[in-house]
Design a protein around this nucleic acid. Structure first.
Lengths: 358, 358
DNA sequence: ATGAAAGCGCTAACAC
DNA sequence: GTGTTAGCGCTTTCAT
């Protein structure tokens, strides 16, 4: 009984009302050249019969699917979810459905997802590369089909790519100036992969800021992170502490890594920020939950998502020329207890008192 | 130049090879009744011409889209991302593409998403209700179309619904027994919405466990949370502390709320767990980053996702009878510093007497 | 303002 | 094993 209802189509509506299918179609799409009376009839009947349009058929015929494909490396942490949220908001406002895929940082899955999205005839593809992606053929394929392609956050080194990024260099540079301004002189860096624009830029800003302030760049103070998670941060921190030089500040390329580092520091009885300042990157919500609260850089995830959709819509309009348009978002330094010695009112607890343990 | 390539279809392949379209179709789908030689030819040419199948056309014809629709309330925190991950893994293994949608806890968006998924001819819908959903018409509509519908975590009160849930009651009960076993006697509860199965069960277990151990259930010790976030937890904690009775333990229905509560306790100089034990629910990653680490209950997100897909696949096979099948996952209590008095090495300063006044 | 008719690209009987 | 054929449900000229 539940399924006897054979799907009802515009033909059924047409028959019922004694109209032609084309009129029904036009009415349903609210075309301008249908009388209001007819529209009303059609809408009413559609409602009554609980008519569900078949978007497959529509897409097949029209060539437009109204689906936007999105590929993110993962949805851990708060950043990518925020971006996705921004994308969904604006896209659905523009009448698009969004198909979200996770590459889980594997090129293989990224390629597979691109393929699936193309099969699904998406009208556009928004992607943030996986960190194992070194070859860009699959992206080129999207463009070759004339389908708008927009990157966000993690961009490939391709000619004429469109995309939106946060100014990681600037954010990291500001962060470094803050640390230096706090009196730190031997700042270490827990570095992300150098083939990705984002982490490359964070590292480069670290380097440049040091030199610009007359401080040496010491490779011993730069430890690569195996990934962006806590454990990797903890491991890197241990490696750093076991080295010859003891830094007086650590800039981790990710908040999660910073959190891992923080735990190691606590284990070893090194006070933050008194003995060592600490800062991360991304402004994850948990940065305000740990003790001391973590200084970080906010990447404006939601705005990034919106900007990406914006770019897509533009590209769709004038699909002839794929100008390598880029939008660069200004990140925001968020200073908290983990890098603040002294004065500010609310940070009073940060400085006085002996170490909290014991 | 980039877009002159008019899409190539099986007709092009057929013409090029002097075969019929049906043979091409069969070869492409690796049907058993095509000679290997032909298959090889077809595959080769498809590769060479970079043929992309059009899944819209295939779906329209076959009636199967191979798309699985998923609706989650949000992707904050780690739980829903974990579920989604589980879903994607198993679904893609079974040859399905996944379309993820966020309702953002708004029924309106949930309804809209259901509509869009139906239009897109999805083969099944997996959903975790928004917390503003009180009416289930849109879900019924899915079933009425004969489309497999599976809930996870948050289930509606509908007859014969299929779904997979964690045993929140059991998890919360174990948590309560742990607290009581630790000597807590005036345990408070920061409660989630009571119209949702999950938070209702957490509350009910709180209630039942108290009575079962001869402790009174006191409404003054139950404070409703405005939502699942930190701020709400902080607000509820303040309200609790401003009340007449000072609890010696707090069980928050969400980890984020517990984190907010923890901050308030710190502000007020109330030591955790010595003065007051604290526990949350979900086992978010940040529970190990805060100090003290938070006791919580793990909900097995990834397994829940896999189970949901499993149910869907079953439903799809025997679509005649919609048995109200349910899978219940056993949650896991994770005891950490926030509720541990005594022995363990690092907790040397433990106090076991009655809670210090004030 | 409405209708007729031709497909979009593919699959699935049914023939041979 | 391969070919023929008839649509899936809709949009979209082109008529009227």
């Amino acid at each position: 009984m539940a399924k006897g209802n054979k799907r009802i189509s515009i033909h059924d509506l047409a028959a019922e009302l004694g109209l032609s299918v084309s009129t029904i179609s036009r009415a349903l799409n609210n075309a301008s050249d249908v009388s209001d009376a007819t529209k009303a009839q059609v809408w009413a009947l559609a409602e009554k019969l609980n008519y569900q349009p078949n978007s497959m058929a529509a897409s097949l015929r029209s060539g437009r699917s109204n689906i936007l494909g999105v590929i993110v490396p993962h949805i851990n942490g708060a950043f990518f979810p925020a971006v996705v949220h921004g994308i969904e908001r604006l896209a659905s406002q523009a009448g698009f459905n969004v198909m979200i895929c996770q590459s889980s940082e594997e090129v293989g899955r990224e390629v597979a997802h691109i393929k699936a999205l193309l099969k699904a005839q998406v009208d556009g593809v928004l992607v943030s590369m996986s960190n194992t992606t070194r070859d860009y053929d699959h992206f080129e394929q999207v463009r070759r089909k004339g389908i708008p392609l927009v990157f966000f956050d993690r961009m490939p080194e391709m000619p004429n790519v469109c995309g939106v990024v946060a100014d990681d260099y600037r954010g990291a540079y500001q962060l470094m100036e803050h640390l230096i301004g706090q009196g730190c002189r031997r700042i270490a860096h827990l570095a992300g992969p150098q083939h990705l624009n984002i982490t490359y830029n964070r590292h480069k800003a670290y380097h440049d800021a040091l030199l610009a302030h007359g401080l040496p760049y010491d490779e011993q103070l730069v430890v690569p992170l195996a990934n962006s998670r806590e454990k990797a941060g903890a491991a890197a921190m241990r490696q750093l502490l076991d080295g010859r030089i003891r830094p007086d500040a650590v800039f981790a390329a990710y908040d999660f890594a910073a959190a891992g580092a923080l735990q190691v520091l606590e284990e070893r009885g090194i006070r933050v920020p008194q003995d060592m300042a600490l800062a991360g990157f991304s402004n994850e919500p948990f940065t305000t939950m740990v003790k001391p609260q973590l200084t970080s850089v906010d990447q404006q995830g939601e705005r990034m998502g919106e900007a990406a959709v914006h770019l897509f819509l533009q590209l769709q309009k004038r699909s002839d020329t794929f100008t390598g348009q880029r939008i660069v978002l200004k990140p925001k330094l968020v200073v908290r207890g983990s890098s603040l010695y002294g004065q500010p009112a609310f940070a009073a607890q940060a400085i006085n008192g002996p170490p909290p343990g014991l």
